[in-house]
Design a protein around this nucleic acid. Structure first.
Lengths: 367, 367
DNA sequence: AATTGGTTCTGAACCGTTACGGTCACTTCA
DNA sequence: TGAAGTGACCGTAACGGTTCAGAACCAATT
């Protein structure tokens, strides 16, 4: 009943002022600056507001005048809903939400459907700034964000030179994981990676596609691997690298199967994410391969599920990334040059990596 | 460089129009209704816009004029970041995001800190509607939402009579779980529940507090239990019910310990959420109790982790709940009476519930 | 009596759009 | 040839606030 009255409601700050016989300014002050009017008048204003069903100053109008929206926008590469399925993305979101919460700011999830190139949602977003999380560097949504006259922080993106940035050194992190495997004796490896560009390419990846990958994170991780293995004489161009568009355990399993079918002699399967690695583990089990002795499997991210599985991986502080991004954005106080936050990672030695059988034998029976 | 020009940008639709010598309307049409002007003029407008660094119509001003924000607000009972830690909440979010995505609408996470009673964030939110998820029914944020003149959908809330609603029949669902345990022979039970009100009360719950609980979901589940057990002659007032404010596995373990310490003779520990139940399972293991033979443990929600643990529980369609809430809100097309969506639940028979030892013995050696 | 200072309240400008209802020149058609 | 369309563009009036420089008033000080 009370609510149905609200449905079409003419009450506005002006009408309230008229009703009370005071100026709009006074009504505004009643809400925003209680010290600017007598307590008695303020009481009257608020009471009349209640009587007329006036819900207080309209947020949009206020935003227009004050030029603050009280919210930051988040642009994700994937469907909005995907973010809630990927543990790493969830961690990032949690951190970002934490930062927003601290600042009393809202967090607007912008519906940027990667399929249609509909950038309108970016234009429609009434926000004070944007956080962009892991989108391909040629994403039109990203371009649209950069054209908006608001501060922006990118995460897991290449250095754009003129925008705040937070991330990790993916290349170095993956490089150190590679060195670990190399030290264990692995030379014949296969790689399973997430998608490298906006187009779907479920299968083998050419070196050219690796170099020109539009996802900075994936490109860097592959580069880290290539560097390490090239250094010990492995012909990177001959290393099988398979890509999967969809990021889930089934994809990881399918990709692992594809590699193992064509190159059964590999001793290690390096995956660029834990999710893919969990799929690879499943596939190995299905084939009766003993991990790590028949096959080493590694991941990247350090999600909880990976820990439970004992995965050898690289842990990155996903929550911290989100929080850092939020903080950076929210205290964009007259900074001049763009800032860059690089968080550290940690190599997690699990139980899914070991020396390949051949190497062990070498040690025992070698020269 | 190009970006630094944007920092203080005077370019507006009006200034663009002036520069071009056309009316503001025409510039507006260039963006919003290409058919209303000649392609040639439109091209000129857009080009001049680029030259002047005009980023297109200001979203906030547009929202004010059109009276749509292009976003829906989500109000959660907990800290924003908490939502990303609770699997059930994540599922709800995913469903809601799905619905928003379909409609091309943004999703604004409103920072409603449950500690301070700062309702301002609700007032500041520029949204076309609200979804309210599982907040105490006396939450001031909820009251603030209901005063806003926008459509609202509540989820896991009591029927407010004048607002759209989606949920499940918590009472019936828990009742059926209780009957299952009763049929197994359980009569001496303990209960672990989530928090019942806004104040922290880690410990035993009086029947009075149960009845007056401000979290509809918890109140209903307890009522479902009370009904079932009362019916078979159990004195509900004597059943130990312990409450925990924090919702995590450690809390569940601590609560279980509290019950088991005081009432070691109970044969079943009924938890009102899977998370708590997982904690209880851990505590039982720690005490060397064999689940289910020494102790039956049950949960509620049907999260993935529960399935992995073989928990006997009630599965509810959390994703569907989110999606239904979103849909309800987004097609608020001139409905008259409030709508209500009740989703169905499913009793999941796991491996954590069995007949108590006594009952088995009765069967074998009884009269 | 004039000045000062402090409250309390007001007027008008401004925020950047879009909706609405035109005008005007130029076909088209009977 | 006159009436009725049609396409391209424009003027005005909101949309609902906030802000800032005063005005009006009163009490206290010089």
């Amino acid at each position: 009943m009370a609510r149905s009255m609200h449905v079409r409601r003419p009450a506005t700050l002006a009408s309230l002022a008229a009703e009370l016989g005071v100026s709009r300014t006074t009504v505004s002050n009643a809400y925003n600056r209680p010290d600017q009017l007598s307590p008695e008048l303020r009481r009257r204003v608020l009471e009349t507001a209640r009587r007329l069903g006036y819900p207080g100053p309209d947020p949009v109008a206020r935003s227009l005048r004050t030029r603050k929206a009280g919210a930051v926008g988040l642009l994700l590469t994937e469907n909005l809903s995907y973010a809630f399925r990927d543990p790493a993305a969830i961690g990032f979101l949690e951190g970002l939400a934490l930062a927003c919460e601290d600042a009393g700011t809202g967090l607007l999830l912008v519906p940027a459907n990667p399929e249609r190139e509909d950038v309108a949602a970016v234009h429609r977003a009434g926000v004070d700034g944007f956080v962009v999380y892991s989108v391909p560097d040629d994403d039109p949504h990203l371009a649209a964000v950069l054209e908006r006259p608001v501060p922006t922080v990118v995460c897991d993106q290449p250095d754009l030179g003129n925008v705040d940035r937070v991330g990790i050194d993916d290349q170095a992190a993956m490089n150190s994981l590679a060195r670990h495997l190399i030290s264990l004796g692995h030379r014949r490896i296969g790689v399973v990676c997430m998608r490298l560009a906006r187009d779907r390419n479920d299968g083998y990846v050419t070196p050219e596609r690796q170099r020109s990958a539009h996802f900075h994170v994936q490109r860097s991780r592959l580069a880290g691997l290539a560097d390490a293995f090239t250094e010990v004489g492995v012909d990177w161009a001959a290393v099988p690298v398979v890509e999967r568009f969809d990021h889930n355990i089934a994809s990881g399993a399918a990709a692992a199967a594809q590699v193992l079918d064509r190159d059964p002699q590999i001793t290690a399967l390096i995956c660029t994410s834990d999710i893919l690695a969990l799929g690879a583990l499943g596939e190995a089990r299905r084939r009766g391969l003993n991990v790590p002795h028949d096959l080493t499997v590694t991941g990247f991210d350090g999600i909880r599920e990976a820990e439970a599985a004992g995965l050898t991986t690289v842990r990155q502080p996903v929550l911290e990334k989100g929080r850092a991004a939020g903080k950076l954005l929210l205290d964009s106080a007259e900074r001049t040059r763009p800032r860059s936050v690089l968080l550290s990672t940690e190599l997690v030695i699990g139980t899914t990596a070991a020396s390949p059988r051949g190497v062990v034998e070498e040690r025992w029976f070698g020269p």
